[in-house]
Design a protein around this nucleic acid. Structure first.
Length: 105
DNA sequence: CGTATGGCTCCTC
DNA sequence: CGAGGAGCCATAC
């Protein structure tokens, strides 16, 4: 649990949010570049199986996007899912394209 | 403290 | 394979 390379400033700001959100964001930060993960996978990984929807909620609140690579989290049906960061879903798809990542991981 | 709201998922049809 | 409906979960109000 230390693969993330987030700035100390961000890590410190994260402290103001719920543990659930931090787990979600940190989990995203741990997703290897060029890979993707489904909301359900993330939920299960952080110890909240079935909380896929809550994961989406947490990511939508992600104030560190795209510094926190929440765009590497996609829906489980091979769909892009959503993106509340700057640029919207378009930006998410663009980032994934740049990273040569496929929606299936 | 109860209701409303999502970057979801699974099961049927 | 696609559309529809019903669960599930944490957060915001």
């Amino acid at each position: 649990m230390k693969a993330h390379r987030l700035p100390q400033s961000i890590l410190r700001r994260m402290a103001a949010y719920t543990e659930f959100q931090r787990k979600v964001w940190l989990c995203c930060a741990q997703i290897p570049r060029g890979s993707t993960m489904t909301y359900g996978e993330v939920a299960r990984k952080i110890g909240h199986p079935g909380a896929a929807r809550a994961v989406g909620t947490a990511l939508s609140k992600n104030p560190f996007a795209p510094t926190v690579p929440c765009h590497r989290v996609v829906a489980g049906s091979g769909k892009p899912g959503g993106y509340s960061g700057p640029g919207g879903i378009r930006k998410k798809l663009q980032l994934l394209k740049e990273e040569k990542a496929s929606l299936r991981g």
